[in-house]
Nucleic acid binder design. Sequence first.
DNA 1: CCCCTGTTCGTACCTCGTACGCGCTGTTCG
DNA 2: CGAACAGCGCGTACGAGGTACGAACAGGGG
Lengths: 243, 243
Amino acid sequence: MASTSDRSPIWAHPEPGSRRPRFTREQIAATALTIADIEGFEAVSMRRIATELGAGTMTLYHYVRTKDDLIALMDNAVMAEVLFADDELPIEWRAGLTAIARRTREVQLRHAWAQHALQNAAAGPSAIRHVEQSLSVLSRTSLDTLQKFAVIGMVDDYVSGNVLRANEIRNEPGGAAANEPIMRFVNAQLESGRYPHTEAAFTGADSREMWSKIAESAAGGEQFEIGLAALLNGAADYYGLSD
Amino acid sequence: MASTSDRSPIWAHPEPGSRRPRFTREQIAATALTIADIEGFEAVSMRRIATELGAGTMTLYHYVRTKDDLIALMDNAVMAEVLFADDELPIEWRAGLTAIARRTREVQLRHAWAQHALQNAAAGPSAIRHVEQSLSVLSRTSLDTLQKFAVIGMVDDYVSGNVLRANEIRNEPGGAAANEPIMRFVNAQLESGRYPHTEAAFTGADSREMWSKIAESAAGGEQFEIGLAALLNGAADYYGLSD
DNA sequence: CCCCTGTTCGTACCTCGTACGCGCTGTTCG
DNA sequence: CGAACAGCGCGTACGAGGTACGAACAGGGG
């Protein structure tokens, strides 16, 4: 994949020009997003997108140099959903970071495939705007640049991790408990007596139901909020932030 | 991939049997690990592993039903590295969780590809033992099962997220700053004036050097420790844990 | 010692990304 | 107003990947 050794991002290359082409990059990206949302990222192939658009496969390569470019476009579209309208973003740093974190989480949960697929995507305009918004809510604090990025990074880490796990959980169709063969295997293991604490955790309860509860509470927002608040407290403490 | 619809984990199937075969699952997994560590996960193909072992490609399918099984084996091998010897694991919950979190981080950083590959891998024996160890350090607390998993999950989320980002950063060969075309694009964007806070963050400093510093501090362990401590404080606070 | 069965693997098919190059067509210039 | 010249669309083909199928092979129990 990606044999073209030109590492410049797609936004450095103008969209095809003068003779109004049949499609636009937005259109192509939107089609890819739709496929990914409905059928998962692995269903997104150049052939598939082209078919969906009623075009020949190779036509796409007039809008995009490689599939990595396509992925960058998808990333950009997703990041755009994370952005706030200027008047929607709280001014206070704590409220601002919390809002951004929540929004990021929501978007990544909505596009479960994105986390995985976009990991190495090239940063586009929306990503830059996202950084801008994160920095802007910290602009009223006394932090220097490095510290700002440290705080943003800490929160980002937590959000990514939370989404990662929530998506893992949701990937098990019908909840992890529904995967009979694996449940059977795990239960058999537990009964071997080599895992006393784990075994104890499930005694006196239907293990299937217990797993569901754990999964639910992990994927739900409450736990997320607890950790987020803890991180912001810790940051405020460590860097001596008021508010 | 994975056409076999049998969803049972590979550990539910005994290794091939009576007439001692040429290889073992461990051997195959180890070979795969080596390839992944040296050349990256995408270099791990069935053909490649077979070649490395001096076997025919299809031979592997006597040890493993699909590539997903192979991935499960790799996962299991990696999880084994996360485990503590029984006497190495601190008894106190805070120290214990910290130790597990650090170890997890170290291992996932060592096997940068694992994060990705691990995501949907079936849980194996080592994964269960890992859960066991996490639960065991919390066994002296007053938390109920759901709460224990909540705390473990919170920490796990943070660790995963941190590793995810650290690996992203390390994936840029020679640091993000080395990617000339992207740097040029981003700088051009910043100069457009649409991103005042981001622009301000880099004024009075060589932007390349600034990025390096940010990357370095994000990938380094210090920031990680700050967030980790914050989370544990928050958890202790929220759940009323002493120690 | 021979046959049965566990093991090995050559061949082939399908999907993917994408290089190459031909043919069509809107645009612009003379 | 017409021709030439891009800009654009896409058919074909190649190599790499996973794995289904079934033939070839060998080692041990009768």
